[in-house]
Write a protein that binds this DNA or RNA. Sequence first.
DNA 1: CGCGTATTTGAGTCAGCTCAAAGTCCGTGG
DNA 2: CCACGGACTTTGAGCTGACTCAAATACGCG
Lengths: 249, 249
Amino acid sequence: MSVQVVAMQDHRTAAICGLTVPVTDLSSLFHRQPIERFEPGRAIFWEGDEAADVFEVADGMLRALRLLGDGRRIIVGFLRPGDLLGVSLKERYLYTVEAISLVQLRRFPRRRFEDEVARHSNLQQQLFARLRDEMTAAQDQAVLLSRRSAEEKLANFFLMMRRTENSQRTSVVDLPMTRLDIADYLGMTIETVSRTITKFATSGVIAAPERRSITVLKMETLRSLADGDESGQWVPSRIAPARYAAASA
Amino acid sequence: MSVQVVAMQDHRTAAICGLTVPVTDLSSLFHRQPIERFEPGRAIFWEGDEAADVFEVADGMLRALRLLGDGRRIIVGFLRPGDLLGVSLKERYLYTVEAISLVQLRRFPRRRFEDEVARHSNLQQQLFARLRDEMTAAQDQAVLLSRRSAEEKLANFFLMMRRTENSQRTSVVDLPMTRLDIADYLGMTIETVSRTITKFATSGVIAAPERRSITVLKMETLRSLADGDESGQWVPSRIAPARYAAASA
DNA sequence: CGCGTATTTGAGTCAGCTCAAAGTCCGTGG
DNA sequence: CCACGGACTTTGAGCTGACTCAAATACGCG
């Protein structure tokens, strides 16, 4: 089975200033590459295409998606500035990636990318770190999808979008994607997404003045709606509910 | 956010026989370690524990799970012989891992594991490959969870369990886990799992004589029930349904 | 201003959930 | 060897939240 990396979060924004830097940083590989622009809706590459290049997102937001045989669409993730995409390490892209907003990318040949990474162990380290984050994202999505109610899913989604924002914890959450994108990411319908947002707004948890952004008014309420673990805070108790008691000794 | 690897598939069963082998292979790190046994239901480690060791599964099946705040349980994955677990590269385990059947493991100190991997670039390569597979598994689960109907989910689950079997494509699928495990993996209830299995059996798609295994009678029907892409075969058409037409040129 | 797309709102249906109870499997002790 | 107990599984009945179909409304662009 073919495998690839969709996107990888970039935490530590390296503080490299000016000078011609040796290859000490993954993003430094992309620095010299020219910016390419993609209009909203444009595909950067398609599921099944030969994985010729790797990209770094310089600006804008993208969606990574898979189409199922019956026409259903699954959004695997949203990509933001700093994310890498197309790091396949295999021969073909596993997902289609499309621009949501106006997007700016830097392109790097995959072959050379792999050579560089193989040559510099510090780059490997960084790639590892990104892979780990990417994996976490994938599993967080799985957790999100297994949430029972529409309210839980959306509340979690808003928190996630807020957190991934440019690290400043503002209560304003940008939603450049459409309701359909959100629906296909959360495994629900566009109508239910809309209704649930309306419900949140009506109950005063959020304000939704514009189409493409919401403002969180009652963060704590939103958190409790999101409920459950919400990745990061350990439930101190180790005692599983009786339902899950160990089968034997 | 803390990150870790739950499990990583082992494809290429290295054909190393006898001799004292230099560290050319990830599993070779574990070869000298003594076997540890875990009874069904026993936890190998808990979510939040300090990630002190890495393990290789020698025999048996395990489940990796997360408990949500409200008591719900999410099974993140099932682990089989050859899988690694606890490769956190961070300080804490992100999941609880429990034995389903009688399990045999080899333990290796995480610190030393990381040293070895950092020292040998071929080990890094292998770790990469496993990380990629692990990621794919995580995303496959997301796809599974976003499947609409119970029938689709279960059909896909059976195909997945069959495929991961010891590479021989038998029509008998072992299910050492309980219905509850399956339910928590697929994001449904135990009752619906049971009803759906009964339905499959009644319609002659599978036979379920024993509790812990099923036999696929009509593979093609099961596939069509699983429907959609079923990871691996590209939908040749690049034409998205009108619903998903690109927003602009 | 008019059109096409995106979003919201409405009404009815149903798959899967919940609650409840019966049935099955298996190990233990008399 | 069989009865008993506990856990797991299946089956039943009713309810409900999310889906489907349908229509109205809002937005953005030429």
